[in-house]
């Protein structure tokens, strides 16, 4: 009976998840003393900005893509959307510089670095599709300029930046899902492995 339960897919997956990410690692109440620098705040700032981007994006989505041109409130929400994007990229780039300086991929954390870098790329795409979905002069110009670059790769045949419907769908559905999912995976990986320890001059012991 008990071995039957242990063999279940459900219990196996639960065991493996709890082994790799026990609750006190997912939501820790202590951290190593070397985590003592302001450079560590830029990751959480990036996530907070992502939260504000999604919140303001939801409000903009509620009233449709043209609302913000004619509504004072809509324009303000658009302004918040823009500035949270600026803060998001700002914090993410400083976070990247910081993690590079710490060689934060050490100790089995290389996939954490890779997911972070891929999240950066997905965010650039999300930002770009937002810029071409503004339905104003800026979006017209950016779309007609960007088409040449994307067309040169052959991608323009499938990713038509002049097609507002396609860009808007990517911007408000598919890319936010990608950005949030990638961020989630990235953060879970950070919690599983913990924050990378400092370089030590004479070390032979390997933690993996």
């Amino acid at each position: 009976m008990s071995t039957d339960i242990e063999r279940q897919w459900t219990s196996r997956i639960r065991h493996s998840v709890v082994d790799k990410l026990p609750p006190d690692k997912l939501l820790p109440d202590t951290q190593p003393a070397y985590v003592a620098s302001w450079i560590y705040v830029f990751g959480v700032t990036t996530m907070a900005a992502l939260g504000v981007i999604i919140l303001t994006g939801i409000i903009l989505a509620l009233d449709g893509p043209q609302w913000w041109h004619s509504s004072t409130l809509g324009h303000f929400v658009n302004s918040m959307h823009l500035w949270s994007v600026e803060i998001f990229f700002f914090a993410m780039v400083v976070h990247l510089w910081g993690k590079f300086s710490m060689a934060a991929w050490r100790g089995g954390r290389s996939l954490t670095w890779v997911t972070g870098a891929v999240t950066f790329m997905a965010s650039i795409l999300a930002g770009f599709t937002g810029y071409v979905s503004q339905t104003n002069f800026d979006s017209q110009w950016i779309a007609t300029q960007a088409k040449d670059g994307i067309n040169s790769t052959g991608g323009g045949a499938f990713f038509n930046v002049l097609n507002l419907g396609q860009m808007l769908m990517l911007h408000i559905v598919l890319l936010p899902i990608a950005a949030v999912a990638l961020t989630g995976i990235h953060v879970v990986m950070v919690r599983m492995k913990g924050v990378v320890p400092p370089f030590e001059d004479a070390t032979t012991e390997v933690s993996a």
Binding site: T30, Q31, P32, A33, Y34, V35, R106, G107, G108, R109, V196, P197, P198, F199, E200, T203, E205, V206, S207, A208
Partner: peptide, 10 residues
């Protein structure tokens, strides 16, 4: 590789 951290936690 990363060294093993044996120091204090806060």
């Amino acid at each position: 590789d990363a060294p093993v951290y044996k120091g204090p936690y806060v």
